[in-house]
Design a protein around this nucleic acid. Structure first.
Length: 134
RNA sequence: GCAGGCCACGUCGCCGCGGGCGGGCUCGAUCCGCUCGAGGAACGUCCGGACACCACAGGGCAGGGUGGUCGGGGAAUCCGACCCGGGGAAACCCGCGGGAGAGUGCCACAGAAAACACACCGCCGAUGGCCGGGGCGCGAGCCUCGGCACAGGCAAGGUUGAAAUGGUGCGGUAAGAGCGCACCGGCGUCGUGGCGACACGGCGGCCAGGUAAACCCCACCCGGUGCAAGACCGAGCAGGACCGUUCGCAGGCGGCCCGUCGAGGUCCAGGUAGGUCGCACAGAUGGAUGGCGACGCACGACAGAAUCCGGCGUAUCGGCCUGCUAAG
RNA sequence: CGGGGCGUGGCGCAGUCUGGUAGCGCGCGCCGUUCGGGUCGGCGAGGUCCUCGGUUCGAAUCCGGGCGCCCCGA
């Protein structure tokens, strides 16, 4: 984020928008996974974005399915993440990766199943981040 | 049963998302309101075009593509009608559908033979020849019967094969043969109809195997790459030019002069990260069109835009409409 | 988004251009060799040639449609 003004502002949507941001989270962040999803977490403490809400990025590869299935998984993940975001500390970047089984979960259990799977990972990530921060 | 066309869950409530317009404010990646927001295939990427850049005098070769006729169309492996061939009881459906009388190649196995037409087995041997018997004649010889298969004649038959110089019948012959005749098939030619592909009819003679989704010949067409094309702006880093660090540039000390502080400043083209345009009355650039609930019913299939347009092909729960065929 | 390639026994591959017999290695089964195993020798089983059509007398091969997988450019 070369623009220094961005530091003073709250992002319109808490989304990752740069390929470099994704690379940084994958390379240097911690990861938590279950059979449906993988959650990567990277704290941005001390950077210009400090103090803002978590930013999230989605990664749904073609292994999950065709365009229709991938869109459905991404929409459900966005819908599920929105209420869960406040459980995470501020100033973190998160990337949610959907594994192949995520499509089956979305088709069978819908938003409830996705929320459960994602909530588990968010809680694990939040407690881990709290330990490191203290 | 056949053909064609249309639709692709609907309504309501709450919470959300992207673009545009208007407005409020603490002017920002904010808030409020209004409005627009996936498909018939958006798919596959099989063709064509627009657009963009690169290459290019003109022509030819090579290479590739297309292939009945007429019309539509900007073009097309596109569409329509018709012709031909095949299928069906019919409505109707299917077909990469030019040329094998220009040349080359191939046609396994089987079979005498697979393309020049004949050799081979075989049939005949009327005619001529040779051998034998009988008759006539003084004799040369003549007549007649039988045999041989030497000359010669023939292409019907030869258990094969996907395919063998057309098929069936009658005549004909020593044996045979389109040798002759009838019908059918093919070819050539003439006439009639049709814009045409072709169709129908008359006459003629008997040259004519298949394969071109084998090479090839003929006619027509074709430069390459693709919006991640391409255009513009452009940090940083490195480079160049000029001014300045003894003669103090730019800039600051509220405007000006003096004075003072000051070691760097200005410009240049190329262009990385990145951004904007390209880009659309859906239109992003980590990529929007969703979630929950209720009711209705046909219980919801295949499937998600990324430059745009015209086709083709493929997937698909079902529903509606129109016409036609057969039977009743 | 665009471009290219590959589907053949259980596995890895030839054969496809130039159409008629599907072959090789490993693996598998049986027999022999050995006290037993390995090695070695012999014999044998096993393939809708991805799928659906077409051309041809005849298709793994030639020509179309489809399905699946892999790779490359940016």
């Amino acid at each position: 984020m070369a623009d220094p003004r961005a530091a003073a502002r709250r992002p319109k949507r808490g989304r990752l928008t740069r390929s470099a941001d994704f690379d940084r989270v994958f390379r240097r962040g911690r990861s938590f996974g279950n059979r449906h999803l993988v959650l990567h977490l990277f704290p941005r403490a001390g950077e210009p974005g400090d103090g803002t809400d978590p930013r999230v990025g989605l990664s749904v590869s073609r292994r999950v399915g065709g365009a229709v299935e991938r869109n459905r998984v991404k929409r459900l993940l966005r819908e599920a993440f929105s209420p869960l975001a406040e459980r995470l500390p501020t100033s973190v970047d998160v990337v949610i990766v959907a594994r192949s089984d995520a499509h089956d979960l979305a088709e069978r259990e819908g938003l409830a199943g996705v929320s459960a799977a994602l909530g588990e990972l968010v809680d694990r990530a939040a407690s881990a981040a709290a330990k490191e921060g203290s």
